[in-house]
Design a protein around this nucleic acid. Structure first.
Length: 346
DNA sequence: TAGTCGTGGGT
DNA sequence: TACCCAAGACT
């Protein structure tokens, strides 16, 4: 078919040289695909290199503490990826004798591996002709074939999967999937598509119909909420208080300073009394930290150590004293990492 | 299913 | 500035 001939010819001459290319080690391909979920190549590259430097095999990763894995993941975001990565490493190491499943169907059963990642691994490592339906594929296919289905609806994924099954190159499925992603990442861009240099520009339906800007169609928008977080620096000599975050919320299993959350940006006596505590806090700084789905209005305060009151602080949250020399072992959210670096580490 | 999970870059 | 988007998965 014309589509895969054109895109594979382009890929053979223009593919990006990346650290996880030129290998079919399933551990390496799996790791790279998890890192690259919702993440740009340039952001994920060093994380991939750090992980394979630290862990030679899936068994090595399985033996590590979750906290160490999260620390290596610090700064990359979507930390459930790291927790699931570690969980699946242990499952493969302990239950599958360290050997990855070799089919799309079996790969998809592993925690953290969905349709996209299973297809990517199965096609790249095991030559299974299954389409990797990701954001690039939505964009390239919706434009080339003029598909007007709303990609923000879950059911639309099947439309693109079926189209991918029809079109995919049966002899080179891994290269085909990577070619689609490379084209989407470098030529068929969301806002400023480079149609003038696109290898598919003579047969692209969206270009012919002047619909490149409209496709793909995506109607649903994420609703963003506002949260007001007050972090309290509790310091005693070379030690500071840290809390491990629990529950179903952002930054699960990462560490922060002790925190009080309020419904407005004011932290007043009422909030403190409600926490059954009264503190002497001095304001340090504030910032706005933007997540994909939340605006975090963050303020930092210092608590001046007072022997008679330190016990009261334990009511605030069950923090533990951490020596600053050991902070390198504790995974921190970006704002806390920045705060600690600014105040304590050069 | 629709909402929830980070961070950084581009426009 | 505010918004969109990035090799998505989970619940």
């Amino acid at each position: 078919m014309k589509f895969n001939y054109l895109i594979l010819s382009w890929f053979d001459k223009n593919k990006r040289e990346l650290p996880w290319r030129n290998t079919r080690n399933p551990f390496h391909i799996w790791l790279s695909e998890i890192i690259l979920q919702q993440t740009r190549v340039e952001q994920g590259k060093n994380f991939y290199l750090n992980f394979i430097t630290e862990f030679d095999t899936v068994n090595d990763l399985a033996k590590a503490d979750e906290q160490k894995v999260l620390k290596l993941w610090q700064g990359l975001g979507y930390y459930s990826r790291a927790r699931n990565l570690h969980f699946t490493a242990q499952f493969v190491s302990n239950e599958l004798n360290g050997v990855f499943p070799d089919t799309f169907k079996e790969l998809k059963k592993l925690k953290g591996i969905g349709d996209y990642t299973a297809a990517a691994i199965a096609s790249i490592v095991y030559n299974e002709p299954v389409p990797a339906v990701d954001g690039n594929m939505f964009r390239v296919f919706s434009r080339y074939f003029n598909v007007e289905d709303d990609i923000s609806l879950a059911k639309t994924k099947k439309v693109f999967w079926d189209l991918g099954i029809e079109v995919i190159d049966e002899k080179r499925p891994g290269d085909f999937n990577q070619a689609v992603m490379d084209l989407g990442a470098t030529i068929c861009l969301p806002k400023a598509a480079k149609c003038d240099i696109c290898p598919l520009n003579e047969s692209c339906e969206a270009l012919r119909l002047n619909k490149v800007q409209e496709l793909p169609i995506k109607t649903k928008k994420v609703k963003v909420s506002n949260r007001f977080l007050h972090f309290i620096l509790v310091q005693n000599g070379n030690e500071i208080g840290l809390v491990k975050r629990e529950g179903n919320d952002v930054w699960r299993n990462l560490f922060t300073l002790p925190m009080i959350e309020t419904t407005t940006d004011l932290l007043d006596n009422e909030d403190l009394i409600h926490q059954n505590i009264h503190l002497d806090l001095s304001f340090i700084s504030e910032e706005k930290h933007i997540l994909s789905h939340q605006n975090l209005f963050i303020k930092y305060y210092r608590y001046i150590p007072n022997v008679s009151k330190i016990e009261h602080l334990r009511n605030l949250s069950d923090f533990e004293w951490i020596n600053l020399n050991e902070i390198e072992n504790y995974p921190l959210p970006k704002p806390i990492e920045n705060f600690i670096n600014y105040h304590f580490l050069d």
